[in-house]
Design a protein around this nucleic acid. Structure first.
Lengths: 148, 148
DNA sequence: CGTGAAAGTCTCACCAC
DNA sequence: GTGGTGAGACTTTCACG
C-alpha cells in the first residue's frame, strides 16, 4: 500500500511541510501529479496528521519550561483535573503514568513568577496529594515527534 | 514591527502549515502579495522556526511512551551522555533539570520489549547513578508547542 | 504513472498612500 | 514605512492514455 517513495515524501514533508509537490517530485523522481496523489492518499489514510508551524518561544515570552509530577487522591477527582489541564494554556501536555506519581505535565511559561502562578493553581485543586516540580535549566534535545 | 494581522497569519499557519497565501489573504483581508511579504518577514525574523508534518505514531509502530529521570555522577560524563542521547532515535527529548535528578528524557518506542532495550543501553552507560522510569498509560493532552 | 491543458497561485516591479 | 495591482512564471488539478 505504501512504499519507500511514500516514506521519502513523508521525510521531506517532516523537514518542510510547505515544500511544493513539484519540488518533491524532483527529489523522489516522480511526476508532479503522482506526488500529489500520494500525498492525498497519505492524508486520507490519516498517516499525515497535521501540517504545523513551529514558532520561536522567545518571541512569545515562553522561555521557562518545567515538568511537574502529580499524585491525586482517587480517580473520582480526575474529571475536574482534566478540565483544569485542558483549559490551562501554559500546560502543553499531560500524561497518566505508572510509578510513584499519577501524572506528569509539561509547563511552558514566561518566567519563575508566572510559573509560580500556575503551580499555585494546580496545588489549590482538590485531591492533589503531592507534587514535584522540576525546572528545566537547559534543553539538550527536543523533537516534537519521531523522525523517520 | 509585528501586529495582530501577523499573529493571525501565524495562528493559521500553526493550524495548517500548507495553507496557501491566497487562502490566508481571504481570512485576514489582505492582498496575496501583502500576505506573502509578511510570511517572508516572519521567516526572516526567525519567528517561524519550521514548517513540519505530524505523522501517525501507530502507523510507524511508536505506540509506547515513557519518561525517564536520570542522575549522573559528575559533569565530566555529560559529553558522552549527550552523544548517546543525540544518536538514540527513540529518545525524542532530553532536558537538564533542577531537582532530585539531573535529566528527564522522553522515549517513544514500539512496545515494552523495545523500551527495555533502550533502558538497558542507558543503564549500561558509565556514570549513571540512578534512574526512574515512568511508562505512559494514557495521554490526556499533548501539544508540541504553545498555541497563540 | 505520465501528459497536457486549464485553473489556480506566487513573484516581482511598480504605483499610491 | 505600508498595502494594492497586474503581467509573467510557476504550480496544481484533472481527464485521458
Amino acid at each position: 500500500m505504501f512504499d519507500s517513495i511514500d516514506m521519502n515524501i513523508l521525510k521531506l514533508l517532516q523537514k518542510d511541510a510547505r515544500m511544493s509537490a513539484s519540488d518533491i517530485s524532483r527529489k523522489v523522481d516522480l511526476s508532479i501529479s503522482a506526488v500529489g496523489e500520494r500525498i492525498r492518499k497519505l492524508e486520507k489514510a490519516d498517516i499525515i496528521k497535521q501540517y504545523t508551524t513551529t514558532l520561536d518561544s522567545a518571541f512569545f515570552e515562553k522561555e521557562l519550561t518545567a515538568f511537574m509530577l502529580i499524585s491525586i487522591e482517587s480517580p473520582n477527582v480526575s474529571p475536574r483535573f482534566y478540565d483544569f489541564i485542558e483549559q490551562e494554556k501554559e500546560i502543553l501536555s499531560c500524561f497518566y503514568i505508572a510509578g510513584d506519581y499519577d501524572y506528569i505535565i509539561k509547563i511552558v511559561t514566561k518566567n519563575t513568577s508566572t510559573l509560580a502562578e500556575v503551580l499555585d493553581r494546580i496545588k489549590s485543586l482538590e485531591g492533589i496529594i503531592k507534587t514535584n516540580t522540576m525546572v528545566v535549566l537547559d534543553t539538550k534535545k527536543e523533537q516534537n515527534t519521531f523522525y523517520i
